[in-house]
Each structure stands twice: as structure tokens, then as C-alpha cells.
């Protein structure tokens, strides 16, 4: 995994609450044995009509959304299934972070393991970000994981919390499998003690 570096980018506003993983990437696209290529079908049933043509009213199809790297979403983002295809699809599209008041547990874990940053903000900040994104769709934000800040165009920095272990892994580009493999002697000891 690449180390997570600070980035500046525009945001897409998706005000729906409880966005479930079946919306993020419908199950019929899970018949793949790869991680790549899922971005084209991110939010497929909201993004395309039955004939596969883009729905012009859906936010990802608006010209100002092109190249956005931050997704501003409603409460309880990523609820539903355990499919890691959800963060793969978001990353494949180009998102690097999602902002919400809360994330479903499995989605958050999956996102962190792939370098997609789930940023949790309080309800008041969330409302403020929504208002800003609605008023200024071209506004740019700066995400700095080391500083744990989300900076607004006027320079205001919003601090966010993140699990310190996950933060270290992201900043160093280290994956958890490496960490676990480093503990194989302890695992062997545990297995020996139980058998």
C-alpha cells in the first residue's frame, strides 16, 4: 500500500443517509476476481438508467464532480454487506476520503485497509460542510492525515479523530498482514498452548 500523503481536492456532496453497500456497488458487479475496474460501476443504479445511460441529475454525472477526491455523505455510510468491493469502487473512481458523521463498522475497516480515509465529523461540522459544498461546488479542501485535519477553502482546519494504529499503517503504507506475520511466533505459542 502507498503511504497516505496529504491531498487537495474538490468534494462531491451525496446527502443521503444510510448509503448501503448495495448502492455503492450492486451485487451483480461482484462477479469479478479482481479489485480493478469497479470504479466504473460505483453507485451504478443511481448513476445510470436501465439502458446504461448516465442520469444527468445524479451528482457524479455533473461536470463539476469530475476529478473530485472527497465524498461528503450522510450518516451511517457503508452499512450492509461486508463487500470490500465498496472501498475498491470508491477508490477506483478516484475518491481518497469519505466524510460522514458515522460509518458502518465493516465498511470502515475495509476502507482503512485500502487507503480510503473515513473521516468522522460531528453533526454541526457535517451540516456546515454540506452547506459549503452546496454553495460552492468547486471549493477545494485539504486533507492531512498526519495533522488529522480537514482544511476548508478559507483555511479553517477541522480536526478529526482516527484510530492511532490505523493512522500509523496508512501514513507508513504498511498493511496489517505484515504486522500479523511479524507475530507468527506468538500465534504458534497460542496454538501450542491450546492443543
Amino acid at each position: 500500500m502507498e503511504p497516505f500523503t496529504p491531498f487537495v481536492g474538490r468534494a462531491v456532496l451525496l446527502p443521503a443517509e444510510n448509503v448501503d453497500t448495495d448502492q455503492i456497488i450492486p451485487a451483480r458487479f461482484l462477479k469479478t476476481t479482481d479489485k480493478a475496474g469497479l470504479g466504473a460501476n460505483l453507485f451504478a443504479d443511481w448513476r445510470y438508467d436501465a439502458a446504461g445511460a448516465p442520469r444527468p441529475d445524479f451528482v457524479l454525472n455533473r461536470p463539476e464532480s469530475r476529478g473530485a477526491t472527497l465524498l461528503l455523505a450522510g450518516d451511517n455510510f457503508g452499512c450492509g454487506s461486508s463487500r470490500e468491493h465498496a472501498p475498491w469502487a470508491l477508490l477506483g473512481y478516484g475518491f481518497r476520503a469519505v466524510v460522514s458523521t458515522s460509518f458502518a463498522d465493516i465498511f470502515r475497516n475495509n476502507a482503512l485497509k485500502n487507503g480510503l480515509l473515513p473521516i468522522v465529523v460531528d453533526a454541526a461540522t457535517h451540516e456546515r460542510l454540506f452547506a459549503l459544498a452546496a454553495a460552492q461546488p468547486a471549493a477545494e479542501y485539504r486533507v492531512d492525515l498526519a495533522a488529522q485535519t480537514l482544511a476548508l477553502p478559507d483555511g479553517t482546519a477541522i480536526a478529526f479523530q482516527i484510530d492511532p494504529f490505523a493512522r500509523t499503517c496508512l501514513l507508513q503504507g504498511v498493511d496489517e498482514l505484515g504486522y500479523l506475520l511479524g507475530h507468527v511466533p506468538a500465534i504458534e505459542q497460542y496454538e501450542a498452548a491450546r492443543s
Partner: peptide, 22 residues
């Protein structure tokens, strides 16, 4: 409990997962 595909790999390789206690 359900896990993602990265974690499926972790368990296949180490029979373990990194978890915070719920």
C-alpha cells in the same frame, strides 16, 4: 462476524485478525 476480503487474506495466512473489542 463478517470481514472484508483483506481480512479474509489475513485469516487465511495467519488464522488471526487485528480487532478492537466491540
Amino acid at each position: 462476524f463478517g470481514i472484508g476480503t483483506s481480512e479474509v487474506g489475513h485469516v487465511l495466512a495467519t488464522q488471526c485478525l487485528l480487532q478492537h473489542k466491540p
